[in-house]
Amino acid sequence: MKTPLLKFTDLGIYCSIAKVYLDPWKPVDKAIISHGHADHSRWGHKQYITHERNVPIVKHRLGDVNITGKKWGEPFSINGVKFTLYPAGHIIGSSQIRVEHKGEVWVFTGDYKIEDDGVATPYEPLKCHTFITECTFGLPAFLWQPQQEVYTDINEWWAQNKANGQTSVLFGYSLGKAQRLLKHLDPNIGKIYTHGAIENMTNVLRPMVNFPHTELITPDTKKEDIKGNIILAPPSAQGNTWIRKMAPFETASASGWMAFRGARRRRAVDKGFVLSDHCDWQGLLSAIKNTGANKVICTHGYTDIFSKYLCELGYDARTEATQFNEDNEEIIVASETTETT
């Protein structure tokens, strides 16, 4: 039996010919990293290879690691296997990893979305024989509304809260979601304040993207200065002592999970905005169709349901277990926080 170009092991997705792993979840000698979220970019590898825009993100989160940056579409060979990074559209610097050997092509997406959010380099469809796809939102119930409508709703919510004399606290992951929200907030409504984890990460990304001005909340920030403005904070800040000085306030979460009935209540927020950095059901199907691939491997998310549906469509689809999980992005937030109040 022919050895597959990529296989799933206890350490991660492995290319045995090149002796390199893709987004490994345990320490390895050489790793190609799709993007900077904590579940895909982990500490402990001897050598990291990633897109050049992801280099400062990885260094910010993991320290002074041995890392090499590549450009989009810049092929590099390891033991005769050609690797190339292409935009995944998930967050800034996120890549699909194209792997080619003796005419066989696999594409590992990491996390991705096909909608251009105005911050990340837009997703680029790639032709391949085997496509490794996430399916975080791989259920027909997940259908995103046009993102501009969501941004309008968020700004109107903020404006209404300000008219009511309340501060707006908007929760989103410190890397990716927070910057997407920031890019589309209307600074004409008021000032944009940030939690330390978001401010620190945004400062890493400012050389790449023109973001609105933000003000870091510190122990010296006065309550009267915050009132009526908006605060971007990671989900981990919810319910802790840091948020008490914001009262009176309204809270909201921006997440694809807000599409689920009851999600807002479970997350104890006043408002939910359905906004995801992953594909919805139709986005996944469209992306897979455009690859021309017959073989599809479903990794994290609703793998069983989604792969079964793909098989009904005629694809050779299966599932593989990984240690990727969207919520793991918040693991690192605590170490990035500068506030103590």
Results as ranks from 00 to 15, higher is better:
H195G: 03
E100N: 07
H40E: 11
W43Q: 13
F142P: 00
Y86F: 06
K30R: 12
L313V: 13
E156M: 11
A259E: 06
I49E: 03
I49K: 08
K223C: 14
P4C: 09
G103D: 05
T299F: 01
Y173T: 13
T152K: 14
W242P: 00
D116M: 03
P234M: 03
E250L: 15
S168R: 00
L62H: 03
N188P: 09
F260I: 14
I32F: 14
G256F: 06
A120Y: 02
Y151W: 13
Q323V: 15
P187T: 10
R180E: 07
P75L: 04
P27F: 00
L139R: 07
Q323P: 11
E74G: 03
G103Q: 04
H184E: 08
W281A: 07
N200T: 00
A334I: 15
Q148A: 14
N54K: 08
E339M: 12
V107H: 00
H35Y: 03
R265V: 12
P187L: 10
A18V: 15
G172I: 02
T319S: 14
I226N: 02
D186N: 13
S255K: 08
I13E: 09
T121M: 11
E100W: 01
V65L: 01
K7I: 14
V209I: 15
Q147F: 15
K2Q: 15
D29A: 10
T218D: 06
K70Q: 02
G12A: 09
I78M: 08
M1D: 05
V107L: 04
R267S: 15
Q96H: 09
P140E: 02
T338L: 13
D225C: 08
Y112K: 11
G176T: 11
I332L: 08
K59N: 01
N161W: 03
S307L: 13
V81N: 00
Y315K: 01
I132A: 08
V204E: 10
L285T: 13
H51G: 05
A334L: 14
W25Y: 09
D316V: 14
G118C: 07
